[in-house]
Amino acid sequence: MAKPKAQSPKSEVQSPKSAPAAPPYHPIAHGLSDDDFKHGKVCTTRWTADARYAWDRGVAIGRYLDGLKQGKLLGVRCAKCARIMIPPRAFCEWCFKPVDGWVELEDTGVVNTFSLCYVTWDVKRVKEPQVPAVIEIDGASRGMGIMHLLGGVDPKKVFCGMKVKAVWKPAAEREGAITDILYWKPL
């Protein structure tokens, strides 16, 4: 059998010859190169999964999304631990009881942390960075953030603690999705 030549494991284990070998002693696995694939030196099969879903939104996320469609950020309140939470949930995870009602929050907040990301989710390089951030929402309890994107700002000027405001899609284009907020801009 024509095994790919790349990385003969035994020769690597043995060098340098002067030093005693370190465990693991014969760590085998045959590494392949791009060429091995490109030129069909190895037998391969391909598969694209057909794995599609329609997840039930449920009570809490359903109403959150309906709020977004109306241009509102909705949170929930737990009377026991006195927290106002976003994203909404039907139950308080710390008190383990159903939450006690809805609260309309501001569409402003504070950047808790952020990144300047030059790589898309599917690993494509981009020139202008995306600016994902955790934004603590005004009106919710301290530390209650959501993940979203910043925009309308020079990436170099973004800082932790920056006040931001949601930039919404035009009402007619909203569909009840987190992307009904296009991005958050400095306030």
Partner: peptide
């Protein structure tokens, strides 16, 4: 009010046949 959110697992795979399979 009972609605769904659509999505998928976008998984494309390239499998080697392995040492013996090859």
């Amino acid at each position: 009010e009972a609605r769904t959110w659509y999505g998928e697992l976008p998984v494309q795979s390239l499998y080697t046949a392995g040492d013996a399979g090859d």
